[in-house]
Design a protein around this nucleic acid. Sequence first.
DNA 1: AACCGTTATATATTGTTAAGTATAACGAAA
DNA 2: TTTCGTTATACTTAACAATATATAACGGTT
Lengths: 125, 125
Amino acid sequence: MKSGLEWQGRLWLEGPEGTFLGYGRVVLLERIREHGSIARAAKSMEMSYKHAWDLLDSMTRQAGCSLVATVRGGKGGGGAVLTPAGEKAIAVFWHYHARFQNVLQEMTAKLEDVLCDEKSVDPGS
Amino acid sequence: MKSGLEWQGRLWLEGPEGTFLGYGRVVLLERIREHGSIARAAKSMEMSYKHAWDLLDSMTRQAGCSLVATVRGGKGGGGAVLTPAGEKAIAVFWHYHARFQNVLQEMTAKLEDVLCDEKSVDPGS
DNA sequence: AACCGTTATATATTGTTAAGTATAACGAAA
DNA sequence: TTTCGTTATACTTAACAATATATAACGGTT
């Protein structure tokens, strides 16, 4: 990384309605697992409840099943826990995300120096 | 791709000020090469001139040299052509972008079916 | 000298995305 | 039956990004 530049990227799983599973959505799922409610999960990542709910709604519609099971009323007012599908979604995403990051890192390592000196246009290995 | 889902991603080269080189910026450079002016390049991709100019300015500052050489006044009012650095930027980006797309395609091919049935949480190979 | 389409730059407008706010329904527990 | 914090939903406001518009400078050509 002689040039001070590095390859970066975003990864998401594309579904029929656009994004199905991406970084933010997976973090949201993890926060729900951690906090036991959509409201507290959203607050913990400075996201509005509405936005969080919309994301979950989008995921649920595209997955064909709920990734979280919600409860209204009752002790504590209700809450939300991950379904097995929700757990799997997290695991699958991080699995591929790790690969993805490795590729970016390799690409950065191979990135040769500078554009500005009068050299060839060969992009490298 | 049994599930109808596919991995998608965005790739960019990160510099000191954020994005240095990404898909849209590279297409802009190519359009400048094609049209010979920033104004026509921007119009050809339904981008405002200002936005195009800002992108070029950002690239120039981060590269440490101009990726396009501009001329004001004169025949036709002026224009812009790519510098060798600009040509190299295009070549480098597409080189890595192709790799990147290959990885996404491989990942999609390995993506196993569905989240919703009661199976293991194993993310696959 | 006047003209032209461009670069370069500033300011205003639009449009989109997310946050903010409000309200109703929920239902176990006190 | 009242209370509680939540889910679920609608509506409003704010933040941001990009477009749109405006203006000056440029300099070869006519």
